[in-house]
Nucleic acid binder design. Structure first.
Ligand SMILES: [Mn+2]
Ligand SMILES: [Mn+2]
Ligand SMILES: [Zn+2]
Ligand SMILES: [Zn+2]
Lengths: 144, 144
DNA sequence: TCCTATATTGGACTATGTCCAAGTCAAGAC
DNA sequence: GTCTTGACTTGGACATAGTCCAATATAGGA
């Protein structure tokens, strides 16, 4: 049993077939699926799983802090199981691929007091944009 | 005539009543309205303006680089007329208020080569989260 | 004033996400 | 192993944000 499933059981969750396949789908590196992608991948193993269960389970995992919700484009939210290692994101503006990255400076230090408008600032998200190697190669072929 | 309307005319845009009121709505500091908010405010001056025209015009302004599209929560996109002065955003996690902020370090410098995965990285967006003074005061009263 | 390419409009349609009442089932009790 | 029950799942209705289109209107030049 995965660490995630064990933690969920410790919290009193019933380990249903639906929750197992969702946990399996979310197991991996650089995983940032949309709810519909999670549903499609889960349905490969458990064809009758419903969209409602996927949304329910993802929402609960986010509430527990086991999964992060990431919204970058104006499209569907993405679900990130890498919740226990703080990180930022690098996104390809061509294909949308998203990589986890770790940065070497604290972005909070770059926000001077005079720019805080009296807010109690607690968190910063940094999102990098660029072209991935695949998209750069495709542009080179197509565009000259 | 505003600078924005002048630039649009220079680009060959027809200056319709709809485009004028949308430009008026977008004139101000710390403006980050949703499309529906732009529509409601524009309709105060021009009641018959359609949602389609608001979406059309906002989309064109974004394509021209006159307005920035900002997506932070999973809700509606926000439209930011402050496109000619690079800035980042500070958002209240209580009420959603968004302020423009300028930071003192280049976030690109914090992303080491080993974390770039072969991407040609071109841009970074930093979003700060915290509680605004109003929401902090409300919490202090309600929560003790 | 007239013409016409461009812009606007209402409404149908798509995508994403939420909610609910009815049925199902995991897991503890025995 | 069987029973019991409250938690879980489900399909479908509903909500919100956004796109698209054919018909209509109009800005601005001739
Ligand atoms: Mn991630
Ligand atoms: Mn802004
Ligand atoms: Zn790419
Ligand atoms: Zn606030």
């Amino acid at each position: 049993m995965s660490d995630l499933l064990q933690r969920l059981r410790d919290r009193g969750w019933r380990l249903t077939a639906q929750r197992r396949v969702i946990a399996e789908v979310l197991d991996g590196e650089h995983v940032h699926f949309t709810a519909d992608e999670v549903h499609a991948l889960a349905a490969e193993r458990l064809p009758e799983i419903s969209r409602a269960s996927v949304y329910n389970t993802l929402g609960e995992l986010v509430a527990l802090g086991e999964v992060l919700e990431v919204t970058t484009d104006g499209r569907a939210k993405r679900y990130d199981p890498n919740a226990h290692h703080p990180h930022q994101h690098l996104i390809c503006s061509g294909c949308g691929t998203m990589r986890d990255v770790r940065i070497t400076a604290d972005p909070l230090a770059a926000l001077p007091a005079g720019e805080r408008f009296g807010f109690a600032v607690s968190e910063a998200h940094v999102t990098y944009y660029g072209r991935c190697p695949d998209c750069a190669a495709a542009t080179a072929v197509a565009g000259g």
